[in-house]
Design a protein around this nucleic acid. Structure first.
Ligand code: ZN
Ligand code: ZN
Ligand code: ZN
Ligand code: ZN
Lengths: 142, 142
DNA sequence: ATTTAATTGATATTAAATCTCAATTTCAAT
DNA sequence: ATTGAAATTGAGATTTAATATCAATTAAAT
């Protein structure tokens, strides 16, 4: 099923479904755990298939683009910091169009998160919530 | 004020308040924007103070440890992925003690996030919520 | 002032991710 | 089945963020 979706995603972009891409896709869907690229590369090797590191990285990017896979950690090129002393806790909305960052805070949201943590026997100390989408200006521009 | 806090944080750990650390702290609190380490290093140089890249990185780690600064992006050594096709959207709690990952989903939480987005004229497409803290097992172990 | 331990910075190192490019493979058209 | 254009591959080079090394320097307590 996921291979059909990947195939049509590739087709629409004029890209080809190769052995290597199939090997990566298979391995990605062979487990439901989180994984890192290097680890995936080794698993593919172990499983008897073959795909170079370069192909693993390239295919992962395609899989994310296709929507079949997501990054659990959203990384920029480097770490981003902010001083927090003197600022109350807040979360972020980031516009995919213009990069605008909206900082927001919701008492209700924080309370609900705590409630959900309690329901899982978990004590939350910190959190990061990042919402990606489009800001007012970019929506109107379309 | 933040320098008093940093000073006592350093004191408790038997560390020293040096010119370089003061320069980094000053620059970090000279603006309320998000920043990257390299950028901060250049700003310090421009401002007439001096601190090597090494010291900037080292001091940033201390500032995070002290609670005065936070990472906006939580990075591991490498990117982490998961396949999402065949799985419904979920968010993550991660235990600081044992690394256990709890996946959870709350209709109510998702709805509230959407409501907050609307209130900001923002249309959210995707989001990541990561809650760090301690799981049941690790709480009991103490 | 002396002593001791921490700190600095230039440089080396590590490691993730991307780039390069000649050789290979795919696939649609003959 | 052959051909040819275009995409893909993989080994290795490159880039770049971040950390580690270590001799020289500095902080701060006595
Ligand atoms: Zn929050
Ligand atoms: Zn912020
Ligand atoms: Zn969610
Ligand atoms: Zn997950």
């Amino acid at each position: 099923m996921e291979s059909k979706i990947f195939q049509s995603f590739l087709g629409e972009k004029g890209l080809k479904l190769t052995k290597e891409r199939i090997a990566v896709l298979k391995e990605v869907f062979s487990s439901h755990e989180h994984f890192e690229p290097e680890e995936l590369y080794l698993r593919i090797k172990d499983s008897g298939s073959k795909a170079s590191r370069a192909s693993v990285y390239r295919t992962l990017n395609l899989l994310v683009e296709s929507g079949l896979v997501e990054k659990v950690t959203r990384t920029e090129k480097s770490n981003v910091y902010e001083h927090t002393f003197g600022h109350s806790h807040h979360d972020h909305m980031i516009c995919n169009g213009c990069g605008k960052i909206i900082e927001f805070y919701s008492e209700k949201l924080e309370a609900l998160q705590n409630e959900i943590c309690r329901g899982n026997g978990f004590i939350g100390k910190t959190h990061t919530l990042e919402i990606r989408g489009n800001c007012e200006k970019c929506i109107k521009a379309k």
